[in-house]
């Protein structure tokens, strides 16, 4: 598999949210606005790239029977780092994402990529894979966040274009399911 293909597969062909349906908890939870989706997506990308690279580096040194706990410790370390950094430098975004930042630890995509890709491939292709998957995740979250923000509060990235309340249900939990369902259907059509 060449590197370009490896990178772009995360966006459409193997998009973690729309095709693999992994990591749906933060997908449904934080995407009340486009900026929240983007912030969450980028935080996850950082963790994915970091854990993929480290896992690929140390894969030979880890005995098979303890690989899952080892991967989780590596992932949790990166999550804690991004948690601290965000709390210090982007407090507003940190606040609106809240509990979902520490919960990146249990995001299936991160452990999934470590187990399915990084533990079997070279450091460089793991880096590309993490970057592609992470940005694909960020792309999906931003798209869903944008759809919900446009319909739910008539604004995009905080910029309001109609000065009334939107279709409230799209900001609430059911709206996340509606939005996701339509986007998945759309992606299926594009992939055909």
């Amino acid at each position: 598999m060449n590197n370009l293909k490896n990178f772009t597969k995360g966006f459409i062909k193997e998009n973690p949210v729309f095709i693999l349906l992994l990591g749906l908890c933060p997908t449904l939870g934080v995407t009340t606005s486009a900026i929240n989706g983007l912030g969450m997506g980028l935080a996850t990308t950082f963790v994915l790239v970091g854990s993929n690279v480290v896992v690929a580096l140390v894969k030979k040194l880890i005995p098979d029977k303890v690989r899952i706990p080892s991967f989780i410790v590596i992932i949790a370390s990166f999550v804690t780092i991004i948690d601290l950094v965000m709390a210090g430098y982007v407090p507003a975004l940190y606040e609106s994402l809240g509990l979902f930042i520490p919960l990146i630890v249990v995001n299936c995509i991160v452990l999934g990529r470590a187990e399915a890709f990084a533990s079997k491939n070279t450091v460089f292709s793991s880096l590309i894979d993490g970057l592609g998957m992470g940005l694909g995740f960020a792309f999906a979250l931003t798209l869903l966040g944008a759809v919900r923000e446009i319909l739910g509060s008539y604004s995009i990235f905080g910029y309001k274009f109609i000065n009334t309340d939107g279709i409230l249900v799209f900001v609430l939990a059911p709206g996340a399911f509606f939005g996701l369902a339509y986007l998945i259907a759309l992606m299926k059509k594009i992939n055909k």
């Binding site: 030979k60 880890i62 005995p63 080892s70 410790v73 370390s77 804690t80």
Partner: peptide, 28 residues
């Protein structure tokens, strides 16, 4: 070669990983 899953290897690996993680987190 891949390390064997002996008790000693597993303990050592987990210890090293958690120790490195702890130091890195303390630094950050």
């Amino acid at each position: 070669a891949k390390k064997e899953s002996t008790f000693f290897n597993m303990t050592l690996t987990l210890f090293v990983i958690t120790a490195v993680a702890a130091v890195a987190l303390g630094y950050v």
